[in-house]
Amino acid sequence: MSFGGPQWPQQGQGQAQGQGQQPYGQQPFGQPQQPGQWQQSQPYGQQQWPSQQPDPFPGAQAPQGGGPTPDWSALAEASAARSQRKRWLLIGGGVVGALVVGAVVATAIVATNKSNDEAKNGGPTATGPAAPTDSATPAPTFSSVAPLPPPNPRDYISDAKKDKAPLSAEGLFPGRKLTMNGRAYAKGATASTTNCAAVTQGGLGSVLNANGCTRVLRATYVKDGVAVTVGVAVFPTDEQALKAKKQATGGIAPLTGAGVGDFCHATVCLRRTNSIGRYVYLTQAGFLNGKKVTTGDQAVFKASDDLGTFAFNQIYARGRSQAAAAAGAPGQ
């Protein structure tokens, strides 16, 4: 395949069949008419291009002295030059195309390698705090099981099966003095007995015995001519203690001794009864001189309030200490 220009005729072919069918004569080659042209053995024939045919080599100079016969050497050189330019254009285009393809492939490889690197390295770092890795310090874990609530102190003072702490008059009413709400009281005698009815007045003894009273502990405190005996009756359960409280009548017998004389005999005194857990606490307050207590005697009422609050606090402290010990014990 040739690029531009006529093809050279081959030897041995037949004569041209007429003007316009074969543009080249089949005569033997002759000598060139101009120096520097192709050296051939025989000149081309003197065939003329038909006037109606377009010039296949526009701009080419006609040979000198030969009439309209084209300068075949010049045409051949021009055709060869054009062919060479086309070859270089094709070669250059192929090289450029190969470079473009290579660049695309290289870009794809780089992108793929980058993607692989990101995949191996865990991808780009996300915004926000980094997730913990195996090499990082493990985060603390917490059990999904809610811890048991701490023991309730009241549970330990409501049932004799749990209320196992030592119980005595000196343990329940410690020291020689008592200060409540800024008021100081001196302690007199203390006592403890399992004969509950023996230390009561009125119908209180029968009520205590009927509800299962097991012990009564007493102590007396004095301040400014006012004496108060506080007693604590103990029952097996809180239900029994509550029932005794509701049925209570009469009062706890005054406790004398340790510098405290007789009081609340054949006179009017202030009696109070309350309960917490399996304990019923009672007070008997009056004047040491035997004076009757009236609603206007605020010193007697305050003394009764102070000693009743003190008894309540002491009983609750028993439950709190036992609950704290149970919470700190192994297996609790």
Rank of each mutant, 00 (worst) to 15 (best):
R85E: 10
R85L: 12
K86S: 01
K86W: 09
L89W: 12
L90S: 00
I91Y: 08
I91W: 05
G94W: 08
V96N: 02
V96K: 01
G97V: 07
A98S: 12
L99V: 15
V100W: 00
V101Q: 08
G102F: 06
G102P: 03
A103C: 03
V105F: 10
V105Y: 07
A106Y: 03
A106K: 02
A106M: 03
A108L: 13
A108Q: 11
A108V: 13
V110G: 10
T112E: 08
A119M: 03
K120W: 11
N121V: 01
N121G: 15
G122F: 06
P124L: 14
T125V: 14
G128E: 09
P129M: 07
P129C: 08
A131V: 14
A131G: 14
P132W: 08
D134C: 09
S135F: 08
S135C: 05
A136Y: 00
P138Q: 06
A139Q: 13
P140Y: 03
P140E: 04
S143F: 04
S144F: 05
A146N: 10
L148M: 04
P149N: 00
P151K: 11
D155S: 15
S158H: 05
D163Y: 01
A165T: 15
P166N: 10
P166M: 05
P166W: 01
L167I: 13
L167Y: 10
A169W: 08
E170W: 06
G171Y: 06
L172R: 01
G175S: 15
R176I: 11
L178A: 07
L178M: 08
T179Y: 03
N181E: 15
N181T: 10
R183T: 14
Y185S: 09
A186F: 00
G188H: 08
G188P: 03
T190Y: 03
T190W: 02
T190P: 01
T193S: 15
T193E: 11
T193D: 14
N195F: 02
N195R: 11
C196N: 05
A197Q: 13
V199G: 05
Q201P: 00
Q201K: 11
G202D: 02
G205P: 04
S206A: 15
S206D: 13
V207N: 04
L208R: 08
A210Q: 15
A210E: 10
